[in-house]
Simulated scan of single mutants.
Amino acid sequence: MKRRSLITVASAATVMTLGGVGYAAHKRNSNPYYRGPVSDHFDGLRFFGPEQSPDKDFSDIVRWRMTAKREDWPAAAPSPFAADVPPERFEGLRVVLIGHASYLFQVAGKNILVDPVFAKRASPVRFAGPKRANPPGIAFDNLPPIDVVLITHNHYDHLDGPTMARLWQVHQPLIITPLGNDAILRGYDETMHVETRDWGESIDLGDGVTVHLTPANHWSARGLNDRRMALWCAFVLTTPRGVHYHVGDTGLGSGALFREIRARFGPPRLATLPIGAYEPRWFMQPQHMNPADAVEAFRLLGAEQALGHHWGTFKLTDEGIERPAEALAAALGAAGLSQNVFLPLRPGQVWIA
């Protein structure tokens, strides 16, 4: 019993980062974030996806932690790339990884942040939970003027409330996120300008750039009793530099999501896809792709180029820090693809179209 208690306490902040667990969700019968009509992916209380997997419960968490074969990470793993100092504006397409799933996209003169996390821990608390293994690939004070922030979902490794409040105070960006997440964001600063949209809806940013919200095989939660009460998404950017498809988190599922993106928007010029936080597979497969899954998604999309993220900054799951990059190289080789068509980005690394 003592061992189980220690495992549970040590795991709590990591579990919260991944969004809590489903065992307590049934205790809530009202949605604190969103009220809207029933749809093909909202039952009046919770959202669900086209291939929604059953919610994990507390026994699954205990099973994972009791049987885990976790590879150690180094206390610090600095990126080989120096922190980037982006130009104020860029007329082409310039992409830099800040770390984990945080990016700066500069396209057609617009500066767009995605899932910005600058915190030292991806956690609801400052004293525990997954700690950064490397500093942000752009220092906060070196950010260019930020026009738009895109938030894919509300897990703590994607929605960093204090960072969002600071961004709002300094840059006053337009914030775009799926249904329900506005209530969470305004809890950090009630003056934030947040635009929420449903899957299939879009926002025109001007200058030929439009943001489209599309489904992902994932879920949401900020705590133990709000599972799937705010929507999650992937984003498609249609731009003068081509189509850019960005996924924060998703499982591969049947591959239908990626076929539908290609059918609707055509083969993307660029796909930014997650490649980490995937072990053990029995637990993570429905919600997180591994590198082989990501290569299959790249193939289904018919994308010209892919960049990999969601690895190497926060230890969320069992695989070692370099395993995603190694497994990506192996998966590309097995598929007969060049290593250059799908790069595992590191903080501060820049890609320019």
Rank of each mutant, 00 (worst) to 15 (best):
T152Q: 02
M164G: 00
A122S: 15
A76Y: 13
H193N: 14
F81I: 09
R126V: 12
L97V: 01
T152G: 02
R186S: 09
Y156Q: 07
D72V: 06
G161F: 04
D182G: 09
P86D: 14
G109Q: 10
A165K: 09
L113I: 01
A77V: 12
D84P: 04
Y156M: 01
P135M: 13
I184Q: 05
T177C: 15
V117Q: 00
S79H: 01
A108T: 01
N154D: 08
P136Q: 15
N142E: 14
N154Y: 02
F140N: 07
E71S: 12
R94A: 07
F90C: 11
N181L: 13
F105W: 13
F118N: 00
A108G: 08
I112H: 03
P144Q: 15
V117K: 00
A183C: 08
P130G: 03
R186L: 08
K120W: 08
D147P: 07
A77Q: 06
K131P: 00
V96N: 01
V107A: 10
A119K: 04
A119M: 05
I184H: 03
G180I: 05
I112F: 05
H171V: 06
R94G: 02
R132N: 01
P144M: 11
W73S: 04
L150H: 00
G129L: 02
W168T: 00
G92K: 10
Q106L: 07
P178G: 08
P145K: 15
T152K: 08
L167Y: 09
Y103F: 15
G161C: 02
P178T: 13
M164T: 00
K131A: 13
A119S: 15
R132C: 07
P136H: 12
P162R: 13
Y103D: 01
N111V: 10
P130R: 01
L150A: 09
Q169P: 06
W73I: 06
A108H: 02
A83P: 04
Y156D: 09
P116R: 00
I98T: 10
I151D: 00
A77G: 03
L179N: 09
P173K: 13
P162N: 12
T163D: 05
P162Q: 14
T177Y: 05
G180P: 00
R89G: 07
I175Q: 03
A139I: 09
L185I: 09
D141W: 10
F140S: 08
M164N: 03
V125C: 02
A83I: 11
G180F: 14
P78D: 14
P136N: 10
P173D: 10
P87V: 14
K110Y: 09
